[in-house]
Computed example of a mutant assay.
Amino acid sequence: MKTLISTNLVQSIMAKEAFVKESVDDILLLSEWIREVFEDGGKLLIFGNGGSAADAQHLAAEFVNRFLINRRPLPALALTTDSSVLTSIANDFSYELVFAKQIQALGKPEDLALGISTSGTSANVVKAMEAARTIGMKTVALTGGTARPGGDLAAICDLVLNVPSDSTPHIQETHLWVEHLLCEIVERQMFASS
């Protein structure tokens, strides 16, 4: 079991290192886009399934409340939390539309849609991105994989940050790491002098 622990740690670190090597400029670009959205009166709409849904809620909480700096709340919303909306859309239409309909109801051109999908192929995330593009929102995906980096989202998003790993746990660990990093960068850019 000690070998398992050591091996797992090394593989997790390797996934993050490979991601940073490929995506450092895109991480900085995304942090700039998020800052601009907040400064221009827009909001960050975040969504995903399973562990990615938990990430969406976690990231929204960090922006709305605080990350490391006590500052004003920032408008971020996880589209994974309203059980009445989610279940009514899934029941009356289809699970594939649970995020797209919320994007259509809440999204504005000055907003940013951030979809999280370890495979990049989650149908409901893809449909939400299509809806966001129709509105004129910026679209960003956090994905993973090596065979089809970015999956279906690669062709329809303005920006894709892909973790070059085929291990779902290591992709998710990297997503959480970069989500925290984005919070820290945006807070420093907006509030470090206050």
Rank of each mutant, 00 (worst) to 15 (best):
L176K: 14
S23P: 00
S31E: 00
M129Y: 10
K16L: 09
E130H: 11
D40Q: 14
H180N: 14
E39Y: 02
W177K: 05
A155I: 00
K16W: 02
G115W: 10
T81C: 12
I171Q: 11
S88D: 07
D92I: 06
S122H: 06
D25I: 01
W33L: 10
V85N: 13
P149E: 09
S167V: 06
T87D: 13
S12Y: 06
G115R: 09
L142P: 00
G50C: 05
V126N: 02
A123R: 14
A123P: 14
A56S: 15
A141V: 02
F63Y: 15
K108V: 02
Q189K: 14
C157R: 03
S23F: 03
G42I: 07
D166Q: 02
H58C: 14
G50M: 03
F47P: 03
L4Q: 06
I34D: 00
S193P: 02
K138F: 01
S83C: 11
E17A: 13
G115Y: 09
V20H: 08
A90H: 15
P109T: 04
K21M: 03
V163T: 06
P109N: 06
G41D: 15
K138I: 02
K21D: 08
R148T: 07
I135R: 03
A100Q: 12
I135Y: 04
I156W: 00
L79P: 10
A100Y: 08
T81G: 13
L161V: 01
L114A: 08
L9D: 14
T87M: 10
F38S: 09
R188Y: 13
E32A: 01
Q104C: 08
S6L: 12
E130M: 12
V20S: 03
Q172C: 10
D25Q: 04
M190S: 10
A155N: 09
Q57V: 12
S84T: 12
D111H: 01
M190A: 05
D82G: 01
Y95G: 15
E62M: 03
V125R: 07
A123K: 15
S122T: 10
I135M: 08
G145M: 05
L112D: 08
N65F: 04
T7R: 13
T134N: 14
L106W: 04
V125C: 12
G136W: 05
D152M: 12
A141Q: 05
N70T: 11
D82F: 00
G50D: 02
I5K: 05
A15K: 05
T118G: 09
E32S: 04
D55H: 11
Q102W: 05
V140C: 11
L182Y: 01
G150Y: 07
S23T: 01
I34L: 07
E96P: 07
F47D: 05
M137R: 00
A147D: 15
F19E: 06
G136F: 01
R133C: 01
A154V: 00
R188H: 13
R71D: 11
G115E: 13
F99K: 10
I34Y: 02
K101R: 15
S84D: 11
A141G: 09
S193A: 12
L176H: 12
M190D: 07
D40L: 04
N70I: 07
G51L: 14
M1E: 12
T143S: 13
A100C: 12
F67L: 10
A60H: 06
L68N: 08
A78Y: 04
L142R: 01
A61I: 00
I103Y: 09
S193H: 11
I13Y: 15
S193Q: 13
D152Q: 15
E62G: 04
V140E: 10
L44C: 13
E39I: 06
I27Q: 00
